[in-house]
Amino acid sequence: MSNTEALNNTRNLVLRLLNDIAPEADLTSLRPDLSFRDQLDLDSMDFLNFVVALHKEFQIEIPESDYPQYMTLNGCLAQLSAPRS
């Protein structure tokens, strides 16, 4: 699997999790560099559910202090595709 494919897979997975949390949101016009919260009208509960979903899907621990890095699509992809120690 190439890097591009892997990235696409991760991207699709993240979008699916977002869709689960905000089923009525239009994800096709989501700008990857801007915060989900404003674009999708997510509140703190939604966001918490989102990071918990990432934790379950990707088997990663995300400390609360890192939450802000997951607030954009680009941020999520950067975090999720970074080599893990």
Binding site: S44, M45, V52, I62, E64
Partner: peptide, 17 residues
């Protein structure tokens, strides 16, 4: 809250609200 959440697993963290 920050300290409490650090000690909690991800699924049990508290919201400020």
């Amino acid at each position: 809250l920050k300290q409490a959440n650090e000690a909690r697993p991800m699924t049990e963290r508290l919201l400020y609200g």
